[in-house]
Design a protein around this nucleic acid. Structure first.
Length: 286
DNA sequence: AAGGTGCCCAACCGCTTCCGC
DNA sequence: AGCGGAAGCGGTTGGGCACCT
């Protein structure tokens, strides 16, 4: 074989399989300093024992700023169904029309949810058929504005290289990844990341890249609800789950960040304040 | 409680397209 | 124009997890 992947493997003990936290950080740091592209060169220069293709995939599908996590919404599903009916399996094209979603994610969603649904419901009375028949207004591609919460101004969700650089550097210095109390969390974020989680100072524009740097969120055992009262919790055992970013729910910023959290959190559900806050109220062209 | 089954999704694979020389 | 390497894309795989029985 002479494919790129097999050449990757032959060349030398290049690593395969799931990415580690350290690899993610290494890749992020390199891209923030030098930009993406030239993936083969980038992989070597960043000191990653990965082939360029693997680095590109990790960046595009997971680390890239703006990746939206969480369940596909009903509106997104409608868009996917509509566009698939027009374009077929042009996943990357479809993904361009759904901000924050990757082609891989849409492809997986189609295979695991929609394809079966469509197959099982060829008749006109099915939900999917009705959805398909409906003309869907498409969200704009590329740039978009996100409106979050009631209390803050809408802002344009764009990352600057400088912002990411600052965030990743700060995260690097925050070595503690497990906490037993809200005070520990507060101390870490205020001292190490320079952001007040109990106050109103969090700037949502500056936070999301940090999420990329924490592998599985930060579990907190007990008394953090006063601070994180809009955060997700695990309904299976009642414990609360927190990501790297924390800020007062009054700002609304945490609401947006949880939706964009690139870290999958098993069994995550939102508690009442979260739901009532209506994250991602709309997308608008800018 | 334990084993089986099915689902989900991150990552892999290989083909195609693009681009520079 | 032709070639080779890089990037993009869509299909496939397999590990981990949840849910049954």
């Amino acid at each position: 074989m002479n494919s790129k992947w097999s050449r990757c493997a032959e060349k030398g003990k290049l690593k395969k399989g799931p990415w580690t936290f350290e690899e993610d950080i290494r890749l992020l740091r390199y891209i923030r300093a030098h930009g993406d592209g030239r993936w083969t060169t980038l992989a070597k220069a960043a000191g990653l024992q990965r082939c360029g293709k693997s680095c590109r995939l990790r960046w595009v599908n997971y680390l890239r700023p703006g990746i939206k996590r969480g369940n596909i919404t009903a509106e997104e599903e409608r868009v996917i169904i509509d566009l698939h009916s027009r374009w077929g399996n042009r996943w990357s094209l479809i993904a361009e029309r759904i901000p924050g979603r990757t082609d891989n994610e849409i492809k997986n969603y189609w295979r695991s949810h929609l394809k079966k649904k469509l197959q099982n419901s060829g008749d006109q009375n099915s939900d999917v058929s009705q959805v398909q028949a409906k003309q869907v207004s498409l969200p704009p591609q590329q740039s978009f504005e996100v409106f979050i919460g009631e209390a803050i101004e809408p802002y344009q969700y764009n990352y600057s290289t400088e912002t990411m650089k600052t965030d990743i550097d700060n995260v690097q210095s925050c070595t503690q990844t497990s906490f037993s109390s809200s005070s520990q969390v507060e101390a870490c974020f205020e001292n190490e990341i320079g952001m007040s989680i109990a106050g109103q100072s969090a700037n949502a524009n500056e936070l999301s890249p940090m999420l990329n740097s924490f592998p599985s969120g930060i579990p907190i055992e007990s008394d953090a609800t006063a601070i994180f009262d809009a955060s997700p919790y695990n309904p299976a055992n009642g414990s609360e789950l927190y990501g790297a970013e924390g800020c007062d729910s009054d700002t609304g910023a945490d609401i947006m960040l949880w939706n964009m959290c690139p870290i999958p959190i098993p069994n995550m559900e939102m508690d009442t304040p979260f739901v009532s806050a209506t994250p991602f109220r709309s997308f608008n062209a800018i």
